[in-house]
Design a protein around this nucleic acid. Structure first.
Length: 132
DNA sequence: TCTCTGACTACAA
DNA sequence: ATTGTAGCCAGAG
């Protein structure tokens, strides 16, 4: 595991999400300077595994539109359980982002997130990326 | 070193 | 609304 700075940056942003608030994978990616890095964020959270998830409120990260990406899995059920325990209301299978979104409405700009962005925005290995 | 894959998502058709 | 594709990062084979 080499430069896991990206993962750490993701964890720091997620730890900054207040109780009862949620963010989407895409929003976390954007805070880190990646317009389309949502998938990478999901990869980072997945890497948490069971144990480390203790200090990272992974359950407050949802898919676009407030959907629970984990779906009908043990983890997905746990995520919904935790969110409801924090007072997050579900509308059907989604969370109302306008009501609970960390970055929605009149929420103050997350400073910790910007700090993480600075660290992550460092020189990017310019290895050739193909994939037609 | 290269390819494939995934707790994603914006965009085009 | 549904489908396909491209782009992101890092780990596995």
């Amino acid at each position: 595991m080499g430069d896991a700075q990206f993962f750490d940056a993701v964890y720091e942003v997620v730890r900054a999400v207040p109780r009862g608030r949620v963010v989407t994978y895409g929003q976390v990616a954007r805070l880190l300077g990646l317009t389309r890095g949502a998938r990478a964020v999901g990869w980072a959270l997945r890497a948490l595994g069971g144990g480390r998830s203790q200090r990272v409120p992974w359950h407050r990260v949802l898919g676009a539109g407030g959907r629970v990406s984990l779906g009908d899995t043990p983890a997905g059920h746990e995520q919904r359980r935790r969110l409801r325990a924090e007072g997050v209301r579900f509308v059907g299978l989604r969370v109302d982002l306008r009501a609970h979104g960390w970055l929605e409405g009149d929420a103050p700009p997350p400073a910790p997130a910007r700090a993480a962005q600075r660290r992550s925005g460092a020189p990017r290995t310019s290895r050739a990326r193909r994939r037609s």
